[in-house]
Nucleic acid binder design. Structure first.
Lengths: 253, 253
DNA sequence: GCAAAAGTGTTGGCATTACACCCATGG
DNA sequence: CCATGGGTGTAATGCCAACACTTTTGC
């Protein structure tokens, strides 16, 4: 690195062989996905500055000199939702020159997977943070629509060979809830029997004695994600697609 | 974005609501993959500055205020190889605070796929640029080993459902050359009959009349990548894995 | 005539799909 | 007793992996 094409008059205070380089603004934006039991949602806010005041926007923040970009993304999510230790993944860095009209900003986009309910009390006040269904997204500032698009495609792909979907559910969930989640992420209608069959055969779920009696008369058994089994599977080299997803998109859920 | 956790004393010259933010150095590093007909290689250089002078390094450059990061990566590859219009993909952005000891630098990593031979005359002088087999990588400066690792994993995954492998081959290639390429990327020994069968059934290859008489007495027919067919397939929703890759890793090639 | 690479067809097993009916319960 | 969602088994299909022999020709 740092070998070529990099000789401009310096402005910064950097030393050594970086001395002549110009520094730039860096930010992170977070696509916070949530699942409310029915639809896949993203957490959006109202942009607080002119000329885009009031437009929908992802949540973000600038990268400080003594903070890693991962940490900046983590803090962004924590500030907005109150949640720590959230599953996050870096998606892509947007570095076009004019993507933010007023300034050159390089923005790294992350997604986070969280559960919707625990955030609900903490939200709402800050910039009207709102859970919005990914099925009907509003217009957004800057290139945030691109970010969301990339995040969603990444999630859809990732969910097929890693059990990250569990991050969007409470620790205990019914098979129907799990399938409903996958249906809304993949925008497919996965076949009920095959879905549970596959998950159970792989051993990724532990069936509990407890039942959810709320949504049905009969009651539906709760399951837990079996993390030990998952580790075992990937250690053995299986990180297989674990959700059949071949049918063309019917109506989800 | 730009809503929270971002209020530090300003140093930069930015205006508006960014005024108090501090800017950082941004660079790009490129993992340039090449295939010499036998092994998958990366193009590395000798790092030119102390205290790492002479250590192996990826090729990179700083991001200028009026250049996008994609463009910076493109220029880096062009400067080092003389090649334009190269297949490139952004991999990941490395933003840990201490990853470059002397300075805070945020680096976005790309990979590029090119053919080895056309670069050979142009290389060598600049920082001893050298094609090195990915099978036996040397130690590298900073976190470049991590970059290479990520790039390689991305390539291995990508190559299974997008025909990017063709970018590493000349326009005309034999079935054996193609298989040899996939063998070295995936570090597997793909079965000869099944490999050609699958490719041919998918219609992604056009068989030419011409033969390569160099590597065998009998001669091997050349093929071309059928890009139209590829577009047709993805338009129809097939972006399937098109290389069988189940066998555990035997010896490649 | 033989070494060296190219080329090709068939089969068994497994995974995936598709499909329909019974169960348990609260009201 | 019935409406609602929960839960399960089987058969047909297609895809993939495994496998071995023939062809060509330069030397």
């Amino acid at each position: 690195m740092h070998t070529i094409n990099n000789h401009l008059p310096g402005e910064g205070k950097v030393q050594g062989y970086h001395a002549q380089e110009i520094s730039l603004l860096n930010s992170v934006d977070c696509v916070i996905f949530g699942f409310d039991g029915k639809d896949l949602k993203v957490l959006l806010v109202r942009f607080p500055y002119e000329p885009y005041r009031g437009h929908w926007s992802l949540i973000g923040g600038f990268v400080k000199p003594d903070t890693s970009i991962d940490e900046a993304a983590r803090q962004t999510v924590a500030n907005m939702t109150g949640l720590e230790d959230v599953y996050m993944e870096q998606i892509y860095t947007f570095g076009e020159v004019g993507r933010v009209p007023s300034e050159r900003v390089i923005t790294t986009c992350y997604y986070a997977l969280i559960r919707v309910e625990p955030t609900l009390p903490r939200l709402s006040k800050q910039f009207e943070a709102t859970w919005i269904s990914v099925a009907k997204l509003p217009n957004m500032v800057y290139d945030h629509a691109d970010m969301l698009d990339r995040a969603l495609r990444r999630l859809r792909r990732r969910v097929r060979y890693q059990p990250i979907g569990f991050e969007l559910l409470p620790p205990k969930f019914t098979m129907t809830e799990l399938r409903s989640l996958y249906n809304s992420i993949l925008d497919k209608d996965l076949e009920k029997r095959n879905f549970s069959k596959k998950l159970l055969i792989m051993g990724l779920l532990t069936k509990l004695d407890e039942q959810n009696k709320v949504t049905s008369r009969r009651g539906a058994f709760y399951f837990q994600f079996n993390e030990g089994k998952y580790r075992e599977l990937i250690a053995d080299g299986y990180l297989l697609e674990f959700v059949a997803a071949k049918k063309p998109n019917k109506k989800a859920n």
